[in-house]
Computed example of a mutant assay.
Amino acid sequence: MGQQTYETSIQQAILDLDEPGWDFRPATVGSGRSAATWRVPQRVLDHGLGAAVVGAVTGMRADLVHRFDLRVPGPRGPHVLTMHDLPPMRFSDEGSLPPWCARPLSPDIEVICPSEFAASEVSELVRARRVTVIPYGVRPSFQQPEPLDVDALAELGITRPFFVHAAGVTRRKNLEGLADAWALAAPDLPDHELVLLGPPHARRHELFGHLPRVVLPGKVDLDRVGRVMAAAEAVVVPSIYEGFGLPSLEGMAVGTPVIAVDRGALPEVCEGNALMTGPTGAEIAEAVSAVGRREVDRDDLIRRGLERAATFSWDKAARAHLDVYRSVLA
């Protein structure tokens, strides 16, 4: 979700700047049946030499190329590459990277990362030499939206005060820790529910299906997720590895307390304006119970979270991207 939000938001934000002298043209590469700008048989993309040729060709008509992921090599010479993090190199269930990623990145490539943590990862794991940190912004639909009302929540199966988790199901999302936490916290919070947003997945059912008062609404439209978060007691982000951790920023931006694990980029993004905790079930449960029993100053967390979220914007990110482009072109 974070990468998709970044790609759509930063492109629109750069276009909205309407900087004179710039002409931006999006292009995509995909297999022969896709709707991509460049349609190439998958067997060509899977072959190192074929992918390299595709990467070179896609940059022939541009003064500068900005790649948004690693699936296709870029053109020879200076260009820009966004790298959000490198979970495939840390976790076995995060897929794999193309074979050319085993080599150090060319010093001609200017890498954009969303956090200092992500920058440290790409510097260590793919030996990137030129890295610029540009944090994400906040989508308009997450800027203090109107919370969903009781009837709308009931349509999603939510009927009590609730904690919400909105992320994937891979190991780094630490669903095991969250499940252990809810098993411990639920008896102390009999009037609360735990809501897990996201498409149906066997791991959610396996880990949470036997626990009390767990609601699985399925996939919710992204612009509606913010309104669900705004109605929650807290947004819980139990991840142990995030290059940014967009749900933590979004939770603060909607005006809801955030409970986040102190791993990856989450401490950097929250900067002390969320309730930080360790990754174990017992530690997360303690934080959840403290919020549910009003043992923390919820209003203070909301105020500080909103102030922190206000320091992030896609407009600011777009201007920083243009600075990187000017530097590379120079």
Rank of each mutant, 00 (worst) to 15 (best):
H79K: 06
A287F: 06
R67M: 13
R203V: 15
V65I: 13
G74E: 01
P88C: 03
T5M: 02
L178D: 07
A152I: 02
V328C: 03
E7Y: 04
P107Q: 08
M252N: 07
L184E: 14
A183T: 05
G243S: 03
H47N: 13
F24Y: 14
R139P: 00
R76Q: 04
F208V: 04
P75G: 02
F163V: 07
A234D: 03
A310F: 12
F24L: 14
D180E: 15
N174G: 05
R67C: 07
P88M: 02
L64Y: 03
L86N: 02
V40C: 10
A260K: 07
V328G: 04
L70S: 01
E242D: 01
V40Y: 12
S115N: 02
I10Y: 08
R43N: 02
E155H: 13
L86F: 10
W100G: 00
A179N: 09
A13V: 12
A317S: 15
D297C: 09
Y325T: 03
R319K: 15
D46S: 05
R213A: 09
D18I: 07
P41V: 04
R61N: 11
V80G: 00
E286L: 08
V261C: 05
S141M: 00
I284A: 02
D93V: 11
L81P: 05
E206T: 08
A253S: 14
P41G: 04
D315N: 15
A56R: 15
S120K: 03
L207N: 07
V40S: 08
A179W: 09
V258E: 09
R263I: 03
P147A: 08
A320V: 06
S239I: 04
R103N: 07
A265Q: 03
A260Y: 07
W22P: 00
E271G: 07
S141K: 01
L329A: 11
A119D: 02
A317R: 06
D85A: 03
P187E: 06
E121R: 09
L306I: 12
R224A: 14
K219N: 03
V214A: 06
R263C: 10
P75N: 05
R326L: 09
V44Q: 05
V138Y: 06
T280L: 02
V138I: 13
Q11T: 12
G278M: 09
R172T: 04
L125D: 08
T5K: 08
D151E: 14
G209W: 13
T277H: 01
I158D: 01
A290E: 09
A318M: 06
A260I: 09
D323H: 14
T132K: 08
R160K: 15
G2T: 14
V296P: 04
P88G: 04
K173V: 04
E295D: 14
P135T: 10
S115H: 02
V237L: 04
G198R: 08
L207A: 06
V65C: 04
